[in-house]
Computed example of a mutant assay.
Amino acid sequence: MSRQDGGTPGTPEPHEDVRDPLPCGTSGATGPGSGGAALGPGATAPGPGATASGPGGAAPARRGRPRSEGVEQAVFDAIVGLLEEGVPLAELSIERIARTAGVGKATLYRRWAGKEELLVDLMRSVEPPEPVLPGTSARDDLVALLESMRERGLAKRNSALLHNVFAQMRHYPKLWDAYHATVIEPRRRLGRDAVRRAIEQGEIRGDLDIEFVNDLLTAPLLLRTVIRPGGSLEPGLAEQVVDAVWEGLRPRD
């Protein structure tokens, strides 16, 4: 592939610190309750997918100049290749990723603030796209959201690579926090918004806490993807969960 910054592949740019291992640490945080698209051995990561929305539906600001899909694909492919070779997250330095991808470190830093942001972008790109909510009712929107959780759970279960990455993420609080803020929280916001609409439209009781209701709906999917990773994720599960919980949420006479 062509060089994007005119430098020699793998050569550190001036004034750059080449020591950038992922900070080690311990954390009691559990892994995320959603999976990603399957990547079998030898497969390459697909191009960047849809980004999570920020407040008001606006996409978060991107760092640096406009992205080059060719550069991003080379970088993502390099990371996937290193992970499939068994390289742990702690040894995935920006310098090593750039050298493997055949680009300069400055090319990566123009696009990502650091390794955590880069890895989160990779994980987001290989996950199924965000669901398109039907908008016909709050119930239908919640079914669509839970169905996307079920699909992510299946994808993570069927991908040894993604399962390994998520397992390692539990030991790196900074990476997990970045993933939670940019991927998990926007999805939870969609769920809370759907619950809020249901309350406003009189579909469910107004005396319940929105966050609590959202937890009631998502808990069965999280149970079967995190606590019981071998639990059934059969088709129709999302609708079954919403309808079962919905009975207890309806306004009282």
Rank of each mutant, 00 (worst) to 15 (best):
V87Y: 02
V75S: 08
G64K: 07
L133R: 00
E127G: 15
S148K: 10
A138C: 10
L154D: 07
A59F: 08
V120N: 00
L82M: 10
R157T: 01
A106P: 00
A52P: 15
G47Y: 04
L122G: 03
S137Y: 07
G57R: 03
R65D: 14
R63W: 11
L83D: 06
L161P: 10
Q73K: 12
L83C: 11
R67H: 15
T107L: 03
H163Q: 10
A160S: 09
R110G: 10
A45R: 02
L108R: 06
G135F: 02
L122K: 01
R99G: 04
N164G: 10
L161Y: 07
Q73T: 13
S93P: 12
A59S: 12
L162C: 03
R111K: 14
S53P: 13
A45T: 07
E69S: 15
N164K: 13
G114D: 15
F76D: 15
L89G: 11
E130S: 08
L82V: 05
E147Q: 10
E117R: 05
P88E: 06
N158E: 09
E116G: 07
A45I: 04
A58V: 13
V132A: 09
P88V: 05
G86L: 02
A61W: 11
R96H: 08
R62M: 10
V87R: 08
A98E: 04
E127D: 15
G102Q: 03
L162E: 04
V120S: 00
L108K: 06
H163R: 14
V75L: 06
L92W: 10
G153I: 03
P66Y: 13
E147G: 06
A78R: 08
A45C: 08
G114E: 13
L154T: 10
K115H: 08
D140P: 01
P88K: 09
R65E: 14
I97W: 01
L89C: 12
V132N: 04
V80L: 04
L162F: 06
G153E: 06
G86I: 02
G102R: 03
R124A: 04
V126G: 05
E147F: 02
G135P: 00
R139N: 11
P131L: 00
D141L: 01
S125H: 00
G114Y: 12
P131I: 00
A113E: 15
A59Q: 13
L133M: 01
A43D: 12
A144D: 05
A98F: 00
A58Q: 13
V71Q: 11
R96M: 06
M123W: 03
A160L: 05
A160R: 07
A113P: 08
P88C: 08
S93N: 13
P55Y: 15
T51P: 15
I97Q: 01
I79R: 07
A45E: 02
A98R: 03
P129C: 05
A106C: 07
S148W: 14
V103N: 06
A144S: 04
